[in-house]
């Protein structure tokens, strides 16, 4: 099973994070759990890779963070999508659709 898992393409993790945060603010563990649920072992996502991506996204102003209390009463950092992040999500979704359409077209013709 592990051999069937594909490495994430460059920049895709950010798209997954943006999409996950579009519904509600979450802490890092919650984000990665949600991603694992959805990709269902098809993609290889190392939990640790999430944090540098989140920090870079915060630097770019796509997300903000705030310390809060988690469901198990521990201090946790919650991330929330900003307006700029929502625009970025729309742009990245459109870009992803364009790329996948283009690749599909090539695969169907050759």
């Amino acid at each position: 099973m592990a051999n069937n898992r594909t490495d994430l393409m460059q920049g895709t993790l950010e798209l997954l994070i943006l999409k996950t945060l579009a519904r509600e603010s979450m802490h890092g563990y919650g984000i990665v759990q949600r991603i694992h649920e959805h990709v269902d072992d098809l993609l290889k996502v190392e939990d640790g890779s999430l944090y540098p991506a989140l920090y870079r996204m915060q630097e770019r102003g796509w997300v903000t963070s705030q310390w809060g209390t988690s469901e198990n009463n521990r201090r946790a950092k919650y991330y929330k999508l900003t307006r700029k992040g929502r625009k970025q999500l729309d742009a990245e979704c459109a870009n992803w659709n364009r790329i996948s359409r283009a690749i599909n077209r090539v695969l169907q013709t050759t």
Binding site: D47, G48, S49, P52, Q58, E59
Partner: peptide, 20 residues
């Protein structure tokens, strides 16, 4: 195994935080 290289992750996060 699931988390990956924690030293690298920690260093990257600290470096990015310091920039901001």
């Amino acid at each position: 195994e699931r988390f990956g290289d924690i030293r690298r992750v920690r260093k990257e996060c600290v470096d990015i935080s310091k920039r901001q």
